[in-house]
Every structure is written in C-alpha cells, then in structure tokens.
Amino acid sequence: MNVRHLTFRLLQVYVAVVRLGSVSRAAAQLHLTQPTVSQQLKRLAEAVGEPLLDTHMKPTFIGTELYHAALDALSRFEDFGGFLQDARQGTRGGFSIGVVTTAKYILPRLLGPFNRQFPGVEVSISVGNRGYILERHRHQQDDLYLFSHPPAGEHTLSARFIHNPLVLLTPPDHWALQRPPTDFAALLNERFLLREPGSATRLVFEEWLRSRNLQLKRVMQIESNEVIRMSVEQGLGLAVLSEHTLMEGQHRLGRPAVPGFPLGSYWYLVCHGNRRLPYPAANFVRFVNEHLARCVDERHIHNDLDALLAHIG
C-alpha cells in the first residue's frame, strides 16, 4: 500500500459507506454525487491494493482493518481539532512569565483565579531582581513580564494595571510616629535600608529625592524585601517599600504621616511587540483585564490593559 495516496477525504468516504451500508446514503450525507463516492472507493482500493467491500457493501477482512484504522486516524484528528480550538481560545497550552522580586506578592493573586478558570494552561514563572528579569526580557526568554519600572524600546509593549504605592516605614517606636516631620529633610540623618542599585523601588525613591534636591546621609544596602522589613522592625533603620509587600502577615512597623508619601508607582504587564504572544498568554492578559477587581483591592486598580490588548489582538 502506498500511504501517500491516502487522504482524509478518502477515509471519510470509506467510513461513511461502511457505516451506512450504501453508496447513495453516504453520498447524501457527505453532500457528494454517487459517481464521486464510487470513484473515491475505487481510488482507495487501488491505493490499498486489496478489495475492501464485497458485493453487499460489507467490508472484507482487510476492509474491516482499514475501517478501524480510519476511525482511529479520523478520531485523533477530531481530538486535535478540539485541542486546536481550545489552544486558539487560550484554554490549553502554556506560557512563561518573568517577574521582578517584589511582584511575587502580586502574581499569585492573579494566577490563582486564572488557574481555577483555565486549569488546562500551564504557567512557567521566573522570579529575580530587576537586572535578572531585564536580561531575560532582552533575550526574549519569556512571553510576559511583570515590572514596576518597565524597560524602554520600540519593540516593547507595556501597560500599567495596578497602583503600587511606595510607603515610608519606621520601627514601631520611632519618634516620627509621635511627631511626624513636616518635611522629609528632617529624616535625612536616619539610616535608610535600600534595595540594590537598579531596583525599581530604589529608582523611584532616588528620583523623588533628586527632584527635591535631597540626599540621604546613611545607607545600608539589602537585596531582599523580607530582610529589609525585618530589619526595620528591629530598629536597624528606615525604608521605602511597596505597600504590597506588607499585605501578607502581621508586621510591627510604623508608617509616619510624612508629606509626599506614599510615592506613586505602578505595576506593568510587558511583552515583546515584535513576536506573536501565545494564545494562553493573551488569554491571561484578557482575564486580568476583565477580572482584576476579583484579584486585587479596588483602591489599587489603575487598569490600562485595553491599550495592550489592542496591540496584541
């Protein structure tokens, strides 16, 4: 048998004839003429090189095996058709997302509801500091990214969707809680605990200081939000952190009423504009756009994802 001469249409015709036991009924079901069906049966028998049907339109021994093989093949491709439809709707398959460290407090609130609605989608997550995720973005290693200070570039698409307030934190017994200063300059002699250079939180804070011609006198660098938070609790210094880092668990921290705080910042979903976004990733963006209020406190919502969706389709 020369399998290259077999086509799905030949197999469909043969299955219909065997099931219905009649060329005319098969022709009617397939919206073909009887001569066309007869010709297709002849071509199939020639390709196999053996008789497939007897004079009563019953399959021969070999014809029966071909019938079962045709059913298997057509069934598999029907399954594939269903899979393809699900994949194009973004309900099957997977995507990867690169997440800056602080965003790990946000992502589970988005992925949890998404996973419950679309359990057939697998998500791969890479978490690291901003420099690490920027490198992944530069080499297009992920489909989506979650930044609070998105990278620039003509082929980068981004849209903000969550407000990310940066709050000033002090130890629980700090003097500024009882006597809030009227100007941040009164705190310049305090030790500040900062993330590594390049951290988005640090970038925003340092830009705010420069805009007011202010400069910190004492700085300790700590490359972990959790360690910074615990260090502030223990009186090691002051810090500026995302409010979202404080939403899990109980913390003994002060938040003095200092003018200018919290600082304004946002979370952005980012993707590459010069490559097609996988269907499941696009579906995730649509889900977040439509169900953000289910995932995040409404006071933090600042949703511009419609603009991103307009680009990715």
Rank of each mutant, 00 (worst) to 15 (best):
A200I: 07
F192K: 03
R191S: 09
S124P: 02
Y132N: 12
F95H: 08
L308N: 06
L30Q: 04
L292W: 04
R160F: 01
P171F: 11
A16Y: 02
C271Y: 12
S75K: 11
L144C: 12
A69T: 07
A47S: 13
I222G: 02
A159N: 05
H272R: 14
A281W: 07
R255C: 11
S158W: 03
F80Q: 13
W208C: 01
M1P: 01
I62D: 04
I228W: 03
G273H: 13
H139V: 13
I222H: 00
R210D: 14
R202M: 00
Q215N: 04
V127E: 07
Q34N: 15
R76K: 13
V48L: 05
L107R: 08
A27D: 05
Q117L: 11
H68L: 14
L32H: 09
E243Y: 00
E248N: 03
R19T: 08
T33N: 09
H137Q: 15
F147M: 06
H31K: 14
A103R: 01
R210P: 00
G235C: 01
F261E: 10
L84K: 11
N164P: 04
Q89K: 15
P119R: 08
P262H: 09
R130D: 14
R25C: 03
Q12E: 12
V232W: 02
H56Y: 09
V3P: 02
L194M: 11
N164L: 15
E290Y: 10
S22P: 05
L20C: 00
H244Y: 09
L188W: 05
E207N: 07
V285W: 07
P35E: 10
L53V: 06
Q85L: 07
D143H: 15
L187I: 09
Q117S: 10
H244F: 12
E223R: 13
A239L: 00
P165E: 04
G264A: 13
P35Y: 10
V3Y: 01
E223N: 15
P262N: 10
T245E: 13
H300S: 03
H302I: 03
C271Q: 11
D79R: 11
L11H: 01
F184K: 02
T102E: 11
P256C: 12
Q140S: 14
V123A: 14
C295S: 13
P180T: 02
P280S: 15
M220Q: 13
F61E: 15
L6P: 00
A70H: 06
H139T: 14
F77N: 06
P59H: 08
L20M: 03
A45Q: 15
I62R: 12
Q29P: 01
L277P: 12
G313L: 09
Y145V: 08
L10Q: 02
L238G: 07
L146F: 12
I222V: 10
T36V: 08
R9G: 00
L146I: 12
P151E: 08
T55V: 10
T201V: 12
M57V: 05
A200M: 06
N274L: 08
L246H: 08
I133K: 06
F287K: 07
P262S: 14
Y105Q: 12
Q221F: 03
E190A: 12
T102D: 09
K104N: 09
G260C: 10
H244C: 01
T245I: 03
L66Q: 04
G273K: 09
E233D: 00
H5P: 00
R191N: 10
P108R: 04
N303C: 04
V17I: 06
G94I: 03
H291E: 03
D183L: 00
